[in-house]
Design a protein around this nucleic acid. Sequence first.
DNA 1: ATTCGCAACTGGTATATACCAGTATTGACT
DNA 2: AGTCAATACTGGTATATACCAGTTGCGAAT
Lengths: 244, 244
Amino acid sequence: MNRPVTNAPQPRFRQIVDSIRNDIVTGVLPEHAALPSERVVADQYDVSRMTARRALEAIEAQGLAYSEDRRGRFVSPKRVRYDISNRVSFAADARAAGTDLEITVVRTRAIRAGGSLAADLDVPVGEKLHEYTRLFCINGHPTLIETEYAVAHRCPDLMDHDLRQSTTQLLEQHYGISARTGDVIIRMRAIQPDEAALLGLPPHQAGIELEQIIRDDEGRPFCFGRQIWRGELAEFSARAIVNR
Amino acid sequence: MNRPVTNAPQPRFRQIVDSIRNDIVTGVLPEHAALPSERVVADQYDVSRMTARRALEAIEAQGLAYSEDRRGRFVSPKRVRYDISNRVSFAADARAAGTDLEITVVRTRAIRAGGSLAADLDVPVGEKLHEYTRLFCINGHPTLIETEYAVAHRCPDLMDHDLRQSTTQLLEQHYGISARTGDVIIRMRAIQPDEAALLGLPPHQAGIELEQIIRDDEGRPFCFGRQIWRGELAEFSARAIVNR
DNA sequence: ATTCGCAACTGGTATATACCAGTATTGACT
DNA sequence: AGTCAATACTGGTATATACCAGTTGCGAAT
């Protein structure tokens, strides 16, 4: 192939991405500062609005910024770290680290265990469960949504308590169930529209899903939780110990 | 031509996303099957090519499909699972699980430890390190890129060995260094253009970064590794044990 | 039978335009 | 001072078009 790619300039929109990213990493644009709007970028860089838009969307996809519908795009804050090896509860982990955490209860229901939930919690199908969904805001910004399923007969009136705190601590204090171990799975997946609405995001972005089965001192599971995180706002630390 | 100005229940492109997603989850489109092209979608659903494109990009962003430049888009295969609590080496984990894994050495270098690497590996700044970058293909598909930094004086001629295998096993067999524990960090981040090229992806997509510090029986770190995974192809399991 | 070049694809980049639906500010009126 | 409507923003959706640059397969020339 004699194609001399000498003049392989980067696409315009990528040049714009690099320029704005530079403003972010150097601190010209601090956390939560507004990025220039699509129309302003189009004007400044002399491109069409669609091209400016693609640049801003790429910055968003990289986690450098987040958008609020029809308000603008803003620089993402620093990540919070969640140590999944030592704690089984993010609320406890965050409080211990002095993080500004606010919990909102989105929904509570009484349900019965279906197939996979029953298997995960090691209970018969049809077993009564408490289901509750909560939104976690860090420094005032929606960061994750958690839905937990607790085996009802082990904590009968759990729903009468204030759920705006660590539920593992609740279970420990009122029912004597202590979270001892957890099986965690982490994966990247798309944020669903209903979740996106709660997190203040456009739908179809990727986020991090974290599932965990929480077990007591006897290794019996008593709670299953599923969290969806804004991927750009978090990181997860763990410790591996090689079995031999 | 006539615009359905009525109550658009959902954007057109999202309807298309749902339709194609349905074909994927029901198996009408099996793993690695080609999705309809942008122009075909535009034709079938009677939308412009840009709208069709947005639908296909959304499917891609959700991890349901991957694209190969100027070849087409294809249905993503099932995720592989990596147990980060029990193994400190993905290669060993995958081989133990019978996964079809092929490793390609992308680059090897001798470097000297800079500030953060020196701190992570607990060696003086300027310490000699082996750096090697490898591409991991699972079932023939590029899935992750790993760059590792090994303390050179503990494995002098490491680079003379065949690196297309688990390096932790190499280090164990030839130097008696056994990987005992690992400190792992997982986060979502953008895949850089050079990484994207190796993974056969368009740049600026989000992926999963996994960093780990590997320690020997005495707890001394001897290797630092950084992996970037195609987010839709993997999930990570771990075990938490609450310290009290 | 092999080679080679030409379609006929594929996605990637980019423009120009239009309208919709929320948000935020401004300013006149109460 | 407080209310509220107009206005000037913001991003979201969508069309139509153009050209570029790789990939792939087919058919003609060797």
